[in-house]
Design a binder for these strands. Structure first.
Lengths: 385, 385
DNA sequence: ACGATTCGTCCGGAAGAAGAACAAACAAGC
DNA sequence: GCTTGTTTGTTCTTCTTCCGGACGAATCGT
């Protein structure tokens, strides 16, 4: 029976490890200051953690806390547990895989262009192969792999973790986590792409320290990851964040979700490419468009800022309701300044003044690596529980 | 210094009081089952709580837990602390006041029609008078009053608790909590009306046990209170839930918020009254409209269901993003079946199928008393911390 | 009347945390 | 070089808190 007292000690142990995870190596005295526990308790807990192998005493010494005098502290750090984790980002047109150690340092990364939409099984086969390759590149065996986090570009049902909507034709009724698990024999945790992007920007990107934010992913599709109170909001059935399927034009184009005039029918990488291509002699790509945007190409700027305004229009409604402090624009098009400016302009135009005033709009720090970084974070979070 | 051990005991004490608060009087043995603590610990903690006066042993005995045999338990209950609290609901056209004991049982309630919008000071004077009257009716003195919760029909800034937008002309730059505090000499906690309505339906109404819900208040204005993960979501600056100021018609009527075509310009009690009145010989009122709705009056039904569809249209976007399990329709018009049906129809039409399938739409249990009940809850919550 | 059963309390013991005392390691000043 | 002062980390003791078992209390069924 876990008694109340054991739980207390456990809690205190956890507060030490989480402090070490958050702020890196530090001395026992720092831990005393950070946790509010007494010196002796911290010493005892650290002793426990060292003997269980969760924490190690580093060889280098730190500086005393105040002034230069005093005994230099011995630093303790979370021991990097053996083995690693993997993150898998499955997009509409690509598969990206990262292998990292168990504190999140990426050891190897691979990307491939894959037509993911057509057939889920093929994409998952490819993803599994890439995980094995990346493991090899990182010098790890499959048996060293503790967990895999993955994201798919579709909402996942909370309970079954399966894809129910017809957004991904070749994935219908598939449970991607289970499928990849079958291929690798390792626990796989799946989530939505925008959710994991939000998690990544929250933990290691532009949204560090923020608590209420909306991460908007503009790529092959359009989705949002919503963080409220510092935690990802998944909703009652796990399908929150469907910003791309807000209807913006009643008579608009039919969307793959079945409705008409969804925001995603107006704003998505393929759509914008198709819109721009006729005016240019060379074949366009996302990278080229972003470069043209930076160079001040009028057509590109116009299309991207229009797209931004369409997103900002829908986002303004959401912000009126949620009043977040931050919007992070990510995805392959997230870095576009025109897009960001369009979003900002539409939010200012359509949201309540106070809501808009409280809001900052920035591009993501992690670019199109956000999702895979978030997938690694997910794997680490789940394996250490 | 609050040591870790003291905190542990405090936590355990709290788990007992919160269990008693949630499930009413119960025996020590029930507390053991509910908290997972040992018999002796519960006994000791209850002893503490009795000696500090937080808990009392009731005179009536319960039944043994299993079967009919065994020593009958002594029930313990949270002692109702002396004195009371008040809730003040300030609407656009009314002031409603309730005085309750400190577990939330309403002892006296008063309502008055007041033109609140015009002058905040007058309305607050009136509210203060009504609190004094209700106290008298409840047999309490002003000195017995521990705290007042109040709501105003406008967003309140999180930090300053003041009204910044021009939505309430006679209240600009006013800090209603401070103003009422000045008049009563008692701590006053102010919040938005829809927020407190949501709190009330969550704790004592149609949303009991729910964790992700949107409370939509349709009355003189239109607002939403959003509960996520069981907690009220207030947003970065405290002005979340402005569903009424989502733009639904770019070329629409100018709204008091300064924008054009806000949902509130289409759906609000005065607006619907004005829309219906010309077709009827008798002067209409909200009550009359609701009665006509129940009687199947075609005009009323049409107008209300149209209004519902407009709300549902905006709500569908929000639900796509939040994926809540429940929408509670409250406010003076919340009881209308046509309105509810309109909302449901529009949500089904415009939200993603899975989102709509996960969602239930119901009318609030508390009617137009929701806000004042929530205000009482707020006062109790703040005073017992 | 008597066992069965459940409830609540008392006692002894174990686990955990905090405080005092002490040793260790370094900087600064003489 | 030596002392002094400061910070760090450990050891020992004390105190708080919780738990398990034993025991009396109160009621039901037979």
């Amino acid at each position: 029976m876990t008694s109340s007292l054991e739980r207390l000690r456990d809690t205190n142990r956890r507060s030490i490890t989480s402090l070490l995870a958050a702020e890196g190596p530090m001395s026992r005295a720092d831990l005393v200051r950070g946790t509010g526990l007494s010196r002796t308790t911290v010493s005892s807990l650290v002793g426990d953690l060292i003997s269980t192998g969760h924490v190690v005493e580093t060889t280098d010494r730190g500086r005393p806390h105040k002034g230069g005098s005093g005994r230099p502290p011995l630093l303790v750090a979370l021991s990097t547990p053996a083995g690693g984790v993997a993150g898998v980002d499955i997009g509409h047109g690509h598969v990206r895989v990262a292998v990292a150690d168990r504190v999140g340092t990426v050891l190897a990364e691979e990307t491939a262009e894959v037509d993911v939409d057509e057939d889920g099984a093929v994409a998952l086969d490819r993803a599994a192969r890439m995980v094995r390759q990346a493991l090899q590149a990182a010098g790890l065996e499959l048996s060293d792999l503790h967990a895999v986090g993955m994201c798919v570009p579709a909402p996942l049902d909370r309970r079954s973790a399966s894809i129910r909507t017809g957004i991904l034709p070749g994935w219908r009724e598939l449970t991607p986590g289970d499928e990849l698990h079958r291929r690798l024999g390792v626990p796989v945790f799946a989530d939505n792409d925008a959710n994991l992007g939000a998690l990544a920007e929250l933990g290691q990107g532009a949204a560090r320290g923020s608590s209420d934010l909306v991460y908007v992913k503009v790529a092959s599709g359009l989705g949002a990851g919503i963080v409220l109170g510092g935690r990802l909001h998944r909703g009652a059935s796990g399908i929150a964040g469907e910003l791309g399927h807000v209807q913006v034009d009643e008579d608009g184009q039919v969307c793959r979700c079945g409705n008409r005039g969804c925001l995603e029918t107006l704003v998505s990488a393929p759509r914008l490419l198709a819109l721009l291509q006729p005016a240019y002699d060379v074949p366009l790509s996302i990278e080229r468009i972003l470069a043209l945007d930076d160079d001040g190409d009028a057509g590109v700027r116009r299309v991207l800022s229009d797209a931004g305004r369409a997103v900002g229009r829908a986002l303004a409604d959401l912000c009126n309701n949620l009043n977040p402090e931050l919007v992070v624009v990510g995805g392959s098009l997230g870095a576009s300044t025109s897009l960001g400016e369009g979003i900002r302009a539409a939010v200012d135009r359509f949201a309540q003044p106070d809501t808009a005033a409280a809001l900052t709009v920035v591009s993501g720090d992690l670019g199109d690596r956000a999702e895979v970084v978030g997938a690694v974070s997910l794997a680490i979070a789940r394996v250490s529980v």
